[in-house]
Design a protein around this nucleic acid. Structure first.
Lengths: 341, 341
DNA sequence: TTGAAAGCGATACCAT
DNA sequence: ATGGTATCGCTTTCAA
């Protein structure tokens, strides 16, 4: 059952030509080689008859390029990243590249996988969520040896290429919607646990200020991604003095948990509390209450991210970019209403 | 900025030995080569100093093996498969293999990716959910050229290797739990849309019969994975004549949708209706109502699946297997109670 | 204990 | 228009 792999040489022999011709016939004509139609047909027939398929390792070695790019995703099931992945995949496919997925969880600990993947040039480049994996930067891990693009994380370091969406504008859309309904006490919870002042919080604060309101810091909880912490934040905000009449949940991962907390408190949505979730998520329709969300151009960011990566792989420069189109869009699922008198 | 890749030869030169020695020093001693401690140290120092990393393509070509296996997952965010993936990853990592993920959605349409991945021997083998991708079997797609293992799908074809969990026993645990609470009219909905008679339905029917009950076919809906269809099924069952007092949702993907339907109907869980979801899912805790679930050894199936695949890659045989341990376990989240009088 | 050299399979330059 | 062949980087057999 050894059934040796069919090689270029086999095809060449069968077609009665040299391997150079077969190779050229396959690659279209990237090289200067031109051949007669008759020859090309003979080669194509030989390929079909032998069932020849190019050997990936040999081709990679010869071309010093694998045609594989990797996306290191924070958690394989992160619904937002899923959209980005689809965009990356579509763009990669179109360009003839193969996308390989790897969970950041597998990569962080010993970085064994990272070393394997990028250190050995198993992949030509990769997209990743953050410039940091654990405490080390990617540059340290890769020894700057391979191109990469950072997704979804604003980054002004000129030496890196980063593609992200307009969080400021997205949160602004959510905030404006609630303001327009008449809400004045709007909470913001569940956001990434960074220093106060990320674009999301800014978008929220700026929008409130533009409306002539003075933001109440007690209504802002940057509680990270841990469901328990988010639930506690939601609980604290909703049961405190002067509770909000509306809430923006700034974090898809946290959204189901925060909604559960609201249900557990016996609050009705939207009668007692209006809710907007930042970033649309696939299961939004089947959550109860079904949350009104803000859909961001994450798919497009994936496409742009891939294209930038390809530039880098091809030795060109690729500038960081903020993806502004399509604009943030509010998907109304009825979880908002005017506040009660 | 060309910065050529450091090769074995560079290391050899620096250490003052031949490439054969360096290669042996790296691979431990898979070969018959033994070397002096002094030499080994010199080589290791040279490796460290040059920052040498093996070139994946060259190694693959030389060994006719890539060290990469692929898992073709039905939908990247399928929560159950996520557990399996973790198992596969852990086992692969332990064995020194790299796991590459690919979404079946990308593969089905033109099978372009499949051809690339397996046809070119980019990967040594793969795990996949079903022997069918679209209408073609994997064998057709791969020309039987590469080892693969089927996960989660019972399969008695001797020529394939399949690893799955005991659906029959899992559903039986759910059914028995409800029977023990006193339920007699138990619905089963949302299962894979196969012919009546899969192990899940059998587990349900057998358990009812063992309890001396006569199953009511109107309570069984194999409605597939489409949320809308499942919602309709749930609606039909719950609003029909003689509605059930308990419901088993046989499908994690459908679970949130079915729960939403229950909420929308104004039914209280568990007062008006007891609910058990087959297969535990990560977000169960934050769904409302939080469903009691059956946890299956899916992680373990992933591990077993990887091991079987490795056997095949190594040219050994690997038998199909039903993973029975750990046993199905009911995770009680309070969505069940005795039926009302 | 170590080195030389023959592959692995494809690409692409240089002849013809 | 087509063929010969060096090359990519590594593994492994065979000699020394």
């Amino acid at each position: 059952m050894v059934e040796r792999h069919v090689t270029l040489k086999d095809v060449a022999k069968r077609a009665g030509v040299s391997t150079a011709v077969v190779s050229a016939a396959i690659s279209g004509s990237a090289t200067t080689i031109r051949m007669s139609e008759a020859t090309r047909l003979r080669v194509e027939r030989a390929i079909a008859e032998t069932g020849y398929r190019v050997n990936h390792a040999a081709k990679s070695l010869s071309m010093s390029r694998s045609g594989i790019i990797a996306a290191v995703v924070p958690k394989i099931a992160n619904p937002v990243f899923e959209f980005a992945i689809r965009g990356i995949q579509a763009a990669a496919e179109e360009a003839g590249d193969v996308l390989m997925l790897a969970d950041a969880l597998w990569i962080e600990p010993g970085t064994h996988l990272m070393q394997r993947m990028v250190g050995t040039r198993m992949v030509d480049g990769f997209l990743v969520r953050s410039p940091h994996l654990g405490s080390e930067t990617i540059e340290e891990l890769t020894s700057r040896t391979i191109p990469y693009v950072i997704l979804q994380t604003p980054d002004d370091d000129e030496r890196r290429t980063s593609i992200w969406v307009d969080d400021h504008a997205g949160i602004a859309v959510a905030t404006e919607h609630l303001l327009r309904l008449g809400h004045r006490r709007i909470a913001l919870i569940g956001g990434p646990d960074q220093a106060y002042g990320g674009p999301r919080v800014e978008g929220y604060l700026d929008t409130l200020r533009s409306a002539g309101l003075r933001p109440d810091p007690r209504l802002v909880h940057r509680s990270g991604f841990d469901p328990h912490v988010v639930a506690q934040s939601a609980m604290a905000v909703l049961t405190g003095p002067e509770p909000p009449t509306a809430m923006i949940i700034d974090n898809v991962i946290a959204a189901p948990g925060a909604l559960a907390t609201i249900v557990d408190l016996g609050l009705r949505v939207p009668e007692d509390l209006s809710v907007v979730v930042y970033q649309d998520l696939p299961i939004a329709d089947v959550l109860r209450p079904a949350p009104t969300t803000i859909r961001m151009p994450v798919y497009e960011a994936g496409v742009r991210g891939y294209r930038a990566l390809r530039q880098l792989i091809d030795g060109k420069r690729a500038r960081s970019a903020l993806v502004k189109s399509p604009r943030p869009k509010l998907i109304d699922r009825g979880s908002t209403a005017p506040p009660r008198a």
